[in-house]
Amino acid sequence: MLKKTFKSIDRIFLVVEEWSLFSATCVALLTAMVNVILRKTTNEYSLYWSDEVVRKVIYFSTYIGCVAAIRSRSLIRIDALPQMFPVLQKPLSQLAHLAVLLFAACMVYVGGQMTIMMYQDQYALTPTLQIPEWCFYAVLPLMGLMMFFRTLITMYEEWTGNNDITGGK
């Protein structure tokens, strides 16, 4: 039952991660490319808002990319000690997972508070596009929740020795 639930969550997260990252990157790439073409071919036309779009996409892809990194087990960690002392590999791995769970919980709480604060501030808009900032801050608690569940799935796979949910190492 737990394995089936984790597999469902994994599939949903995978679709959200891949398509949102793909879409956001395409938007940033096309916006930047059109702006460069306009700047180089004309002297009078430019997309004054393209830099803001690229900045927001980098912000978004950094946070959602953290979730994808957990799935592929590519999240940064110190691995020298487990290589020197293989007996410490499992305990240190679990300690790293607990640290990620704590970070994810902080992101949900603090990110949620920041999102609410930005939502209540009617003047908190992006400089050029005038999009409410809370839309971008909402990525923080979303990323925290996704990281939390991805880490739980990874911990479950390591505990059971069964890596067929995410296809991990």
Rank of each mutant, 00 (worst) to 15 (best):
T5R: 14
T151G: 04
F85S: 04
S8P: 09
A80F: 07
A124K: 03
Q122K: 09
M33Q: 00
T128S: 07
D121M: 12
Y45Q: 05
L75I: 15
T154F: 00
Y156S: 00
I165P: 09
L21M: 15
M33F: 09
Q130F: 10
Q122W: 06
R73H: 07
D51L: 02
Y48D: 11
M84K: 09
L95R: 01
D164N: 12
M147R: 00
R150Q: 12
S23L: 15
M1C: 03
I165D: 08
V139A: 04
Y45R: 10
L21A: 09
C106N: 04
Y119F: 06
C26D: 02
I58L: 04
A105I: 14
E157N: 14
V34L: 06
T126K: 10
I165H: 13
D164P: 01
S8M: 06
F103N: 13
R11Y: 10
V34T: 09
T151S: 02
N162T: 04
M118E: 01
K90G: 03
A24M: 12
A124T: 07
N162E: 11
G161N: 10
T42L: 14
Y109G: 00
A28Q: 13
V54K: 10
T166Q: 11
T5Q: 08
F136N: 03
D164L: 06
I64T: 13
S46P: 00
Q94H: 08
R150D: 05
Y59C: 07
L2C: 12
L129D: 02
R150T: 00
V54G: 00
E44R: 13
L102A: 11
T31S: 11
C26I: 12
P86C: 02
A138F: 01
K90D: 08
W19P: 07
K7I: 10
D121I: 04
T31F: 13
S23I: 15
P141R: 02
S72W: 14
K40H: 11
M147A: 08
A99Y: 08
H97K: 03
Y137K: 05
E52Q: 01
Q83C: 01
I37G: 14
T151K: 03
R71T: 03
M117E: 07
A104Q: 02
L152Q: 09
V15H: 05
Q120T: 15
M33C: 07
A32F: 07
G167I: 09
T62C: 11
R73N: 15
V57D: 02
L38P: 03
L101W: 04
F13D: 07
F13L: 14
R71K: 13
A105R: 11
Q113E: 11
Q94T: 12
P127H: 03
K3L: 06
T25A: 15
V57F: 04
W19G: 06
M118D: 00
I131Q: 12
V27L: 12
Q113A: 10
M117D: 15
G112L: 12
Y123I: 02
E133I: 09
E44M: 13
I78H: 11
V54D: 03
M117C: 03
Q113W: 00
T62A: 07
E18N: 14
S46W: 02
N163C: 05
V15W: 10
